[in-house]
Design a protein around this nucleic acid. Structure first.
Lengths: 147, 147
DNA sequence: GCATGTGACTTGATTAATCAAATGATCAAA
DNA sequence: TTTGATCATTTGATTAATCAAGTCACATGC
């Protein structure tokens, strides 16, 4: 047990939980023909539109190549448009996507929330959010030690 | 903002954090020619060996197909052996893997822990662990609503 | 003892992510 | 007005995961 610090236990829990709940979310969203990643991207566009691909990639922690292909798929589905302004493509949602999100978002939000709402009190949720925010913000500043 | 319940904010934080720290962990482990997933699998084998592929797949929340290929890779690298007992393959670590883990584990554990240790007090870590354990255990029991 | 079932694992097809090299558009300077 | 520099995006190669169908060894019932 010497090696199992509290931190590594937390890490494992977080990984297992997100992995698993992500899979469940994919199953849940299949009825709308969406993946969790796609829903996430569409929501970010909804909030921040219009924005560039780089900004979007940054927000959802995916590579530029990844966002390029993902947006190509969403564009083919008719959920977004990309227009070339100056040298940058700005992304916006189509009406089709707005309508779809209006319907799907409450369900998906309820689904996500149920993971926490069912077992934690309001106060515990506040605490969890506060702690994870601290941890997340810290990790974004983190430098990897040199090889 | 109506739609952003506390739960969905937590969900997003967790996803972003694990996604990002997982990527960082992959970079960190590259020096040992390992991925985070491989390290995770090897650690589980170390703790629970000997065990079957099904049990292992269950533990690391991956499909049977996934674990089959992953173990094939680890076997080719000389980290594990699989022998056919009755109709089940039991997996164990090789000496090579034991030695490697002895060296890598403390570093990886320290790396994981640093995400939490640097910004949370011991007590806050305890709280975070307790809350995530509750949430995780609950999610494992969760049934998806029917389509 | 043959046929059928079952359980554990593998594999083919598909999907989606990564990295790194290529493309394409604008700007800046000679 | 061509040449190079820079920046955003795309694309080819590779890796790894999923699902579902396939294999293989043993068990069980007729």
């Amino acid at each position: 047990m010497r090696e199992n610090t509290l931190g590594s236990l937390i890490w494992l829990r977080l990984m297992r939980f997100t992995n698993q709940s992500n899979q469940m979310s994919n199953v849940f969203l299949k009825r709308f023909d969406l993946t969790t990643a796609q829903f996430d991207v569409l929501m970010q566009i909804r909030i921040y539109q219009p924005l560039t691909q780089m900004e979007l990639a940054e927000k959802v922690t995916i590579t530029q190549g990844g966002i390029s292909r993902m947006l190509a798929r969403l564009e083919k589905e008719g959920y977004i448009t990309r227009k070339l302004d100056w040298k940058t493509k700005t992304i916006s949602l189509t009406n089709k996507a707005e309508k779809m999100l209006e319907k799907v978002t409450p369900e998906q939000v309820a689904f996500q929330s149920s993971f926490f709402h069912d077992v934690l009190t309001e106060e515990e949720q506040q605490t969890l959010y506060k702690l994870m925010t601290k941890v997340h913000k810290h990790s974004q500043k983190k430098e990897l030690p040199p090889v």
